[in-house]
């Protein structure tokens, strides 16, 4: 029971990170119908920006809450610039091309980002000293002590707040309305006088900033990053987006949580060495049995 509880806590934390990345996949798929395979690497860039900012701020001696806010903001702004640039360079020129072209371009962009970071930051792993320490301990008298660290609380809280803001943005504001309109009919949206290119750019900016927050949390939680983390995390978040139903935003949040839980429970009860298999087995099973995911809309063609 105590062990189960601990896995649950860890799973929700990990699920938050995946959920934030998955939103970027699902939004981009929704609006331009492509899988942005460079999104995982955008997350990696976010983690690196966070690491560098943390180290720089450590020299200044500013108090921790301010540092956290500043790092989050810096990571979001920088990473959003990367996301925006990737879209302008690699996807926009191909928008009227055949469907596979932007997908190939995305794979290329992913390799470019990885190698760029490798060249700029070196290939060795980078470590960060724990930023937030301590936590609550439960069941102290039993033989397994359940720990809920402050960091985990921070991660889950930030995720909840961001997802709430993001949901409001999509459902209540005119930017969100324009995005949903683009998802359904881009030509018609343009004929309503809406700048579709700008709406798509905004989608990339929002998706990238959410991924960068996931990057900040990742570097704080694990304390170790390298230029290659974007690949695995990206594919797992993609699995999460497919599991929830690609194109569906609540689905991405749900899928992220589920993938986080599946992976942690698998590591906790079956085998930690084979933890990556859990996520990918899920991907295969979902694609075979529920191709539209939990909350996705099936493509029904009216005849």
């Amino acid at each position: 029971m105590e062990y189960f509880l601990q896995q649950l806590i860890n799973g929700i934390t990990l699920g938050s990170v995946y959920g934030l990345i998955a939103i970027g996949y699902t939004m981009v798929y929704g609006i331009i119908g492509m899988i942005n395979f460079a999104h995982g690497d955008i997350f990696m860039v976010g983690a690196f920006v966070a690491l560098i900012s943390f180290i720089l701020f450590a020299l200044t001696g500013i108090s921790l809450p301010i540092v956290l806010i500043l790092v989050l903001l810096i990571a979001m702004v920088f990473t959003a610039c990367y996301g925006w640039t990737v879209e302008k360079l690699a996807y926009k020129p191909l928008r009227k091309s055949f469907r596979l072209a932007p997908l190939i371009s995305a794979l290329g962009m992913s390799i470019v980002l990885q190698n760029y970071v490798q060249a700029a930051q070196g290939a060795r792993i980078k470590t960060l000293q724990p930023v937030i320490q301590g936590g609550f301990n439960f069941f102290k008298e039993s033989d397994f002590v359940v720990t809920l660290s402050y960091l985990q609380i921070f991660i889950v809280l930030v995720t909840i707040v961001l997802m709430a803001i993001f949901t409001l943005l999509i459902t209540r504001t005119d930017l969100g309305r324009a995005q949903r309109a683009c998802e359904q009919d881009r030509t018609m949206t343009a004929l309503m006088g809406i700048n579709v290119d700008r709406t798509i750019s905004m989608t990339f900016i929002i998706g990238s900033s959410l991924a960068s927050v996931a990057g900040v949390m990742f570097v704080m939680y694990y304390g170790v990053i390298d230029f290659y983390i974007g690949f695995l995390a990206g594919i797992k978040a993609f699995t999460a987006a497919v599991l929830g139903g690609i194109g569906s935003i609540p689905g991405a949040m749900l899928g992220g949580l589920l993938i986080g839980l599946i992976e942690t429970f698998w590591s906790g009860y079956i085998s930690i060495e084979y933890k990556d298999i859990a996520a990918f087995t899920t991907l295969v099973i979902v694609l075979i049995f529920f191709p539209t995911g939990f909350l996705g809309k099936p493509d029904i063609e009216k005849v």
Partner: peptide, 20 residues
């Protein structure tokens, strides 16, 4: 109907920030 009135709303909402 609201999508068709996007442009004037977008300006009024300061590109959605004030809308939030």
């Amino acid at each position: 109907m609201m999508v068709a009135q996007h442009n004037k709303l977008m300006v009024a909402s300061g590109f959605s920030i004030l809308g939030l």
